[in-house]
Write a protein that binds this DNA or RNA. Structure first.
Length: 426
DNA sequence: TCTGGGGTCCTAGGACCC
DNA sequence: TCTGGGGTCCTAGGACCC
């Protein structure tokens, strides 16, 4: 088999680019997209990055800077970003079937079967196609390993003369070293805040230092992933292209509330809504679950922070929203105490089995008729919510309170997912 | 006043078994 | 009081990713 040639396609400032698609007037203006409750910046245009506003910056701390520079802000509009993401993946899939969808704004491709070896030229052409047909700017990094492809994209984004594509495939050690030297250690794939501090304490300040570490030393310091990263930085691929979607291990729905609350009804409504959404996802994935857990917390940034929760186990795996809500309510009864200012809550499902692979019920504990009627009911609810919007049919518990609902004051229209919001051209 | 959400993997340590 | 080794499974915690 041919050795893989990895290309990483990474959208530039993805959420911001999506918002600009429908607002061309914002092309050269500073734009930021904010998280749930408009709490912090999750995407920044290059103009905003240049102002020194970091990723995850709390909006209230930077209010003055936002106003001073007339930064245009949006509440996150994930329906829009998901739709644009699918269009880009669709276009890439016509270029090569060897594609791994890594995240909403990044895909790995394997270019080893490509007829050309001029990967940079090729990358620039595809980049132009995506820009012409979809309108989102992307960057290409090409290399013999994923970690080096990541590094190449990093460099391509910072050097305009590369025109959005850098290939380290077949490059000399000297050339690769020159690029790695300019990548700070915290920007290497797999190195977060903690490991960066650890590495710096050892004098490893950039990607080149990392590449030169002794593999055994890297493993001892950073575990197996560290050793693999050293190999990857030296051009030996350890992380293959994963075309198959991984089997889902867990489904989580968690939210910070629109405002704090001490009322049990608010928590009941929040958890019921989270269960509803998580169970829908579970059914759409063709799975059932053995386990559900919930948690409720106060504000982590305030003194006296507390977190409470519980777990439930289902002997017979289920995807029934009603049953899961009941379990969640019982867990809440067990951990709720009046008098706390609750700030955040969440639901986690885990321990799945495929629905078409259920173990035979040897004890006959399952009432088949009841099962079938429950299944019909769930399917009807799902169909209605898919056709007419996800809040068409809800469980009564979901409506017991509304304090948890997030504030999204500056959300862009659903340009592509709602007939009423489709832009008009005059 | 105001600080996101949804995931995965690795390791260490304890329980348990032969 | 003396007192093995090795394997597996599970969980909690810590780290990372976008």
């Amino acid at each position: 088999m041919k050795r893989p040639v990895f290309a990483l396609v990474d959208c530039d400032n993805f959420f911001v680019s999506c918002e600009r698609l429908f607002r061309p007037d914002l092309e050269d203006r500073p734009v930021a997209v904010l998280s749930n409750n408009d709490g912090c910046a999750v995407a920044r245009s290059s103009e905003v990055k240049a102002l020194g506003i970091p990723m995850g910056a709390p909006a209230f701390k930077y209010r003055d800077l936002f106003e001073k520079h007339k930064i245009v802000t949006f509440s996150a509009n994930f329906e829009l970003y998901g739709d644009i993401s699918r269009r880009i993946i669709g276009l890439l899939a016509t270029v090569t079937p060897k594609i791994e969808i890594y995240s909403v704004d990044e895909s790995f491709l394997d270019l080893s079967e490509l007829p050309t070896k001029d990967y940079e030229q090729w990358g620039r052409r595809v980049r132009q196609n995506i820009l012409d047909w979809i309108g989102v700017p992307v960057s290409f990094g090409i290399a013999p390993s994923k970690t080096l492809a990541k590094a190449a994209v990093e460099r391509a984004k910072k050097a305009p003369n590369l025109e959005g594509a850098l290939s380290l495939q077949g490059a000399s050690l000297q050339t690769i070293g020159k690029h790695l030297l300019r990548i700070p250690i915290e920007d290497v794939w797999g190195v977060g805040r903690r490991l960066a501090a650890k590495l710096k304490a050892e004098g490893v300040m950039n990607a080149l230092d990392y590449a030169r570490m002794r593999p055994a030393h890297a493993q001892q310091l950073l575990s197996i992933r560290g050793r693999q990263t050293v190999a990857e930085l030296n051009g030996t691929s350890c992380f293959p292209l994963e075309r198959e979607k991984r089997v889902r291990q867990s489904i989580a729905r968690t939210r910070t509330f629109g405002r704090d609350t001490n009322k049990k009804e608010d928590l009941q409504a929040a958890l019921a809504s989270f269960v509803h959404a998580a169970a829908f996802r579970l059914r759409m994935s063709g799975l059932r679950t053995h386990g559900l857990s919930i948690f409720i917390t106060t504000n982590q940034h305030k003194p006296g922070y507390g977190r409470w929760g519980g777990e439930a186990h289902f002997e017979t795996p289920t995807a029934d929203t009603g049953q899961l809500i009941n379990a969640a309510m019982e867990l809440l009864d067990g951990c709720y105490r009046a008098g706390h200012a609750y700030h955040r809550a969440g639901v986690l499902l885990g321990d799945f089995v495929p629905e078409d692979h259920l173990q035979t019920d040897i004890l006959g504990a399952v009432d088949v008729k009841k099962e079938q009627s429950a299944e019909r009911r769930l399917r009807a609810v799902d169909t209605l919510n898919e056709r007419y919007g996800k809040h068409t049919v809800r469980y009564a518990t979901e409506l017991m309170g509304s304090a948890w609902e997030s504030r999204q004051t500056i959300k862009s229209p659903r340009y592509v997912s709602d007939w009423d919001d489709i832009p008009l051209v005059n």
